[in-house]
């Protein structure tokens, strides 16, 4: 018979996990080498690029996007072709073609931070004292996942909010309406993005536990993460052209894979394995 954990114990364990996450977040916030690329890349991809592209698209007189739209499979181009001509380019670029960037950002940030989760602690010689604390292995693993997941999602969502402001702002003279986010954008940002981030960090935390330095973890994990990035880039524009149920289904599939990887990591994660490599 499984006895449910008393509420007080569960609260105490949550408090411990929150403390681990708080420690990691403070440390990340103070590491310029991590913060600068973590903010610079999203600012470039989610703010400056849509702004520049929007301005360029806006200045085009009667742009011909028929060739691009014609190369899209089946009736995927239909939602764009149904728009007035002067709106097509800006919607195509800022509404569809930039979509891949929104999966790259959470994947990249979570992977970088997850690589540091255990390998970074080893490098800084702080891992052993962490292992000597009375924290259940499961909680330690999950807290380390959360330490990478929270900033990745925060950067991604804040970046998306900024993108919406910029994309709509720059397109206003042409569109005279808010065109992002659409329902499909919301699904991608709030459902598929976190799933992709979880997938990346589930891989990277496991790699991080087996390597000695964060750099080594990044190199080894990159072999898995890079194909994931290419896959995301390839598929995410298409995600905005499918129906809502299909997009939700794709997100669910990514979540299932990510959570299976997390569960696998939890099963294999032991103090002994980490301490033997310190």
């Amino acid at each position: 018979m499984v006895t449910p954990e008393p509420l007080a114990d569960r609260r105490a364990r949550w408090a411990v996990m929150r403390a681990i996450v708080a420690k990691d977040l403070i440390a990340v916030r103070r590491a310029k080498a991590v913060v600068i690329p973590m903010l610079a890349v999203p600012i470039l991809l989610m703010v400056l690029l849509p702004f520049g592209v929007g301005l360029a698209a806006r200045s085009q007189q009667n742009p011909d996007v028929g060739r691009i739209l014609g190369s899209m499979p089946g009736d995927l181009a239909e939602p764009i072709l149904s728009l007035p001509d002067h709106e097509q380019l800006i919607v195509l670029v800022n509404g569809y073609l930039l979509a891949p960037l929104f999966l790259i950002v959470p994947l990249m940030v979570s992977a970088v931070l997850a690589a540091d989760a255990f390998a970074g602690e080893k490098e800084r010689k702080t891992l052993e004292s962490l292992l000597h604390l009375p924290i259940p292995e499961r909680d330690l693993f999950l807290a380390k996942l959360a330490s990478a997941f929270i900033p990745a999602i925060a950067v991604s969502w804040i970046g998306f909010a900024a993108f919406c402001l910029v994309a709509n702002g720059v397109a206003w003279p042409v569109m005279h309406r808010v065109f992002v986010p659409t329902q499909l954008w919301m699904v991608m940002i709030f459902w598929v993005g976190p799933a992709v981030a979880t997938l990346g960090l589930a891989v990277m935390v496991r790699v991080s536990a087996r390597t000695k330095t964060a750099q080594e973890a990044n190199q080894l994990g990159g072999a898995v993460i890079l194909p994931l990035i290419f896959l995301s880039v390839g598929q995410s524009s298409g995600l905005l052209l499918v129906t809502l149920p299909i997009a939700l289904g794709i997100g669910a599939a990514v979540w299932v894979i990510a959570l299976l990887l997390v569960r696998g990591g939890l099963k294999r994660f032991t103090r002994d394995q980490l301490a033997a490599r310190v």
């Binding site: 411990v16 929150r18 681990i20 420690k23 403070i26 440390a27 010689k125 702080t126 604390l133």
Partner: peptide, 18 residues
């Protein structure tokens, strides 16, 4: 085994909470 990016107080206080 102290985190160099944290202050002395943060190192101790966060360990206590952990």
């Amino acid at each position: 085994g102290l985190d160099e990016r944290l202050t002395a107080r943060e190192n101790l206080e966060l360990t206590a909470r952990m």
